[in-house]
């Protein structure tokens, strides 16, 4: 069981640092690979973002930068985030608060800005939840 207090202090998703070349059948047999070792990492996505920008794919680069930020967000919270951006799920205030929270909690400024931008667009186009 994970320590509940710890989880509340740092809700971010953990990532491991095993190098790709260390991920071998031998290591698997020795039970040295955990599921976290084979998840994508923030740094990987930041690198892919740099590569995409250099190749002339700015939108893809921005997507990868948001993805890099989202690596820290646990799975359930990630789905909640998506749900809140769907039509008429959130009020303007809720989206702005969400934007702040994402930035503060997960060090995710680009995702936060993206949510804020959505809040403005939703306000103009009637995509907000009306209480």
């Amino acid at each position: 069981m994970p320590d509940r207090d710890d989880a509340e202090k740092d809700p971010r998703r953990k990532e491991a640092h095993m190098a790709p070349e260390e991920i071998t059948l031998q290591a698997l047999r020795e039970a040295r690979i955990t599921p976290e070792d084979v998840t994508i990492r923030r740094r990987t996505l930041e690198f892919q973002a740099e590569r995409a920008a250099a190749e002339g794919y700015p939108q893809l680069a921005r997507n990868f930068r948001r993805a890099a930020e989202l690596t820290a967000v646990p799975g359930d919270a990630l789905l909640v985030l998506y749900e809140k951006l769907r039509p008429k799920r959130s009020t303007h205030g809720e989206l702005l608060a969400l934007s702040q929270e994402i930035i503060a909690r997960y060090d995710a400024p680009e995702t936060g800005a993206y949510i804020r931008e959505a809040a403005e667009a939703y306000l103009r186009k009637g995509l907000l939840r009306m209480d």
Binding site: T39, N63, R66, L70, L81, R86, P87, L127
Partner: peptide, 18 residues
């Protein structure tokens, strides 16, 4: 049941899981 922003976030969510 989507907006361009929700779809865009979903794209990032998938990428964040590789």
């Amino acid at each position: 049941d989507d907006t361009p922003w929700s779809k865009g976030l979903l794209a990032s969510a998938y990428a964040s899981r590789g």
